[in-house]
């Protein structure tokens, strides 16, 4: 299977996210947006809004200062 056909799943660990918005800015596929609901820390965390568009480029995990994003293959 080429990388192109691979399926990736991005998850934001919502209670570990500080809502800084860096992942939202740097995801060129606009996979991530802001959740309307506050998390445990009182931030509006990031959440996948177009999960099917994830290409597994790992830009979001590079910029996340809080290791709040997990990317799975499959």
């Amino acid at each position: 299977m080429s990388k192109k056909d691979k399926v990736f799943t991005v998850k934001v660990r919502r209670d570990f996210c500080k809502g800084c918005g860096l992942c939202i800015e740097f995801c060129k596929k606009e996979v991530l947006g802001t959740s309307a609901k506050l998390n445990r820390m009182g931030y509006n965390p990031a959440e996948p809004v177009k999960p099917e568009a994830c290409i597994g480029c790992m830009m979001c995990t590079q910029v996340c200062p809080d290791l709040a994003i997990e990317v799975y293959s499959g």
Partner: peptide
Amino acid sequence: INNWPKYYKKDVVTHYCPG
């Protein structure tokens, strides 16, 4: 894909500001 780094305490929440 992005496994938690071995030498970073698991599930750490730092005191640093967002971003």
